[in-house]
């Protein structure tokens, strides 16, 4: 029995209540998706580009870049 400290005894657990749509873990998927209508704006890509750039900087700055070498390359 999962304790629910905020609900009175006998009340339904919040995770068990859902909407009308198909549920995931008892929760309506309706609340998990963006509302339709109009052309949705694409998600900004700069964090992705920044991550890739950061990884390349870190890999290039390391004294020995073993992990970026192909497996057949001799170890230095």
């Amino acid at each position: 029995m999962i304790a629910n400290w905020h609900a009175p005894p006998g009340a339904a657990l919040p995770l068990r209540t859902g909407g009308d749509g198909p549920s995931v873990m008892g929760m309506s998927k309706d609340v998990m998706t963006a509302p339709s209508g109009g052309a949705p704006a694409p998600e900004p890509r700069w964090p992705v580009a920044l991550t890739i750039f950061g990884v390349l900087i870190i890999a290039a700055a390391m004294p020995d870049r073993l992990t970026l070498l192909p497996p057949w390359a001799p170890l230095r």
């Binding site: 990884v55 870190i58 890999a59 390391m62 004294p63 020995d64 870049r65 073993l66 992990t67 970026l68």
Partner: peptide, 13 residues
């Protein structure tokens, strides 16, 4: 140092 830097790069990648 080579092992340490390689492990850092492995973890970040």
């Amino acid at each position: 140092l080579e092992l340490l830097t390689s492990s850092v790069v492995s973890w970040v990648v």
